[in-house]
Computed example of a mutant assay.
Amino acid sequence: MSRALVFQTDFGLADGAVCAMYGVANSVDQKLKIYDLTHDIPQYNIWEASYRLRQTIDYWPEGTVFVSVVDPGVGSTRRSVIVRTRRNQYIITPDNGTLTHIKRIEGIESAHTFDERANKLPTAGESFTFFGRDIYAFNGAKLASGIIDYDDFGESVSVDSLVELPIIPSYREGGQVIGTIDVLDVRFGNLWTNIDHHLFHELNVSRSDRLTIKIKNDTRTVYKNTMIFARSFAEVAIGEPLLYINSLENVGIAINQGSFAKAYSIGTGTNWHISIDKA
């Protein structure tokens, strides 16, 4: 029985790259059900590819095959891998840090690396720049359709050997919690932090309490103000900021019907720090 096949890339939809991946997968098995996680990962942004997998994977059933292609090192010596998560899902991707959040948060049960040349789309010929089509979509479709079996494909490697991007954990220090701004809720400009709801609630806060929020880019303070802790956006006036618990049960910062990121020119990554304490 075919498994679901889910694609994620930084290719966008302005040309035929994603459609070519669909074509390869359909050529392997026309009965496959193919879905898109996103194709709007910012170019070369491995961190965001890793985060979007983490955002999505829990809501897909066992056996789902994810193909993630954000691959600035295409054609280099970096490995191609397939991993099986602890929830018995599969991810095929370059081993370049894309698996960071899955490894740290979801858990990876085992990993295999495989020979790219020996498992390349036969019609690709001399091309070695479109591995999304020629390697990952091709082998992801074969895995999803059952043509190849994970246990027998490639060579087993240590999960510890998988490349990880640096992660700075959130923590509590006295009466405040401190973390980083991992990613944006892109369309709306909300900030998604790495401070989970358990750590946040160690501050013993209730809804409608006012909190002091400080955001720094490295050592430079970019934002400092107070806002309320709300259940949802509708609990504050339009244009008013709020702190809320997002869909991953981490702390989010937003402006009701506005973009917090644009309003204060705030970015994401480990150099963007946020601290929260009671006002």
Rank of each mutant, 00 (worst) to 15 (best):
F233W: 11
Y22R: 14
T129M: 14
R104Q: 12
D29N: 09
L203K: 05
D160R: 04
D15M: 08
G252P: 05
E48G: 10
T38E: 07
N119C: 06
A230F: 06
N88G: 03
A144S: 08
D149S: 15
S158I: 04
G12S: 09
I34N: 00
V18A: 05
L243C: 14
H198E: 15
G107S: 08
F131C: 07
I255A: 03
I245F: 13
F131M: 08
I274Q: 04
E109C: 05
G97R: 07
R133D: 00
D218W: 06
L162N: 04
G258W: 09
V251C: 14
R172K: 15
D29H: 11
I135L: 13
I266Q: 04
F138G: 00
S110W: 06
R87A: 12
A254Y: 04
F260C: 05
S2Y: 06
L184T: 01
T270Y: 14
E106W: 09
I245Q: 05
N45G: 09
L143E: 03
R133C: 06
T85G: 03
V67L: 05
S2M: 11
N250H: 14
F11S: 03
E240D: 10
T268D: 02
I46H: 01
V251N: 01
G75S: 02
N26R: 07
G132S: 08
V67A: 04
A279V: 08
I195W: 03
P122C: 06
Y223L: 09
R52G: 01
I82R: 00
D58K: 14
P241G: 03
V70F: 00
R86S: 11
S259P: 14
Q43I: 10
L248N: 13
Y51C: 10
K224I: 15
T221A: 07
K262P: 04
I195N: 00
N45H: 13
L121W: 04
T226A: 10
P94A: 11
V28L: 07
N190R: 12
Y51I: 13
A49H: 03
D218K: 09
F130T: 01
K278W: 06
V183C: 12
L242E: 01
T64W: 01
Q257H: 15
L199I: 13
R54W: 14
T212N: 14
V83L: 04
A234F: 07
N88W: 00
A144H: 02
G125F: 07
V177S: 02
F128G: 03
I213C: 02
W192L: 12
V24C: 01
P169A: 02
I266D: 01
Y264W: 10
V81Y: 01
Y223M: 06
Y59V: 09
S247C: 10
G189C: 11
R172D: 07
F11P: 02
E235F: 09
N119P: 04
G16N: 14
G258D: 02
D10V: 12
V205M: 13
L199Q: 01
S206M: 10
L121A: 08
R220I: 15
R86N: 11
V69D: 05
T270K: 15
I245Y: 06
V18F: 07
S68L: 05
D277M: 13
T268V: 15
S265D: 09
V6K: 08
F114I: 05
D95E: 11
D95G: 02
T180P: 05
